[in-house]
Design a protein around this nucleic acid. Structure first.
Lengths: 149, 149
DNA sequence: TATTGTTATACTCTATAACTATA
DNA sequence: TATAGTTATAGAGTATAACAATA
């Protein structure tokens, strides 16, 4: 999406009264910036989320990874292959279940994830610099309540 | 995305500290609900946004519509065709520029948009019912500040 | 030359279904 | 029979490039 040109032309609209519309634009701006932030590392936002999750969850298998991130089994295959191709992750058969493949970061993966985390923290600071620390916390809390029962 | 199953499996993660991650899930939940809200009318969220914008902007031509909503000219064609196929919009050559096509809602389009607006208002109430009126306002303001210079 | 709308194309994201090998 | 991973496929979203008609 061409965010900048579209935003330049936005005027007052009934759409502006919908929180969903503000949410859409905020999401677009943030994902566009995150995408270009990670691109120099050869990663897309989803790869970053995968690597964080893999590092945090020893013995994680693919199905569990997909479940955590909301990615279906079939769609996970090319994503994992991308990380394998860059030798950022290892894949090994689970000793307790020979159907399952456990994922682990390689040393190279650990190192690149550190770089990525530093870039992502800077990205968040950049995108949220108009919000105080208190407002950032509140934003997270309010977002979590959207669509809750 | 399978939101429900993924959310059920989410535990504490470094990702949770990123506002972008909360934003992503909120966006997914909201868009999924908006999609099923509008589906009975034969519309997707983008069609709804197009119809609102067309109604609000007399003499609107396609390029301007795309610019307002962040949709490229080429991608707009099948979207406009969808609305034309349902006879929800008229398309007529601009008298001032014979290259340009002006869009206008038909009577049928006006009526369906009223229905859609009622459903979307209920959808927003449903998604935001855990937030007070004050919190909803604040959420909109905070979202608008994301990615601002 | 520049712009409007169109067509063609490609890549990503998401979803479903069928297949295999294990359990 | 159920589950883990894979493959195939299809629809939606987004991006670029080329073209005809008009400005």
């Amino acid at each position: 999406m061409n965010v900048s040109s579209a935003e330049a032309d936005r005027g007052a609209s009934a759409l502006d009264e919908l929180v969903g519309y503000s949410l859409r634009w905020a999401h677009n701006r943030l994902m566009a910036d995150l995408g270009s932030t990670l691109e120099p590392l050869g990663l897309r936002p989803v790869h970053f989320a995968m690597m964080v999750t893999i590092r945090e969850t020893p013995g994680l298998i693919q199905t569990a990874l997909g479940s955590i991130l909301g990615i279906q089994r079939g769609n996970l295959v090319p994503l994992v292959n991308h990380l394998l191709g860059l030798t950022l992750v290892h894949r090994l058969v689970s000793p307790s279940d020979r159907r399952a493949l456990m994922l682990r970061l390689t040393a190279e993966g650990e190192a690149l994830l550190e770089e990525a985390l530093a870039l992502v923290r800077k990205h968040e600071e950049r995108m949220l610099k108009r919000l105080s620390r208190r407002e950032q916390q509140m934003l997270g809390q309010l977002l979590a309540k959207i669509g809750e029962e």
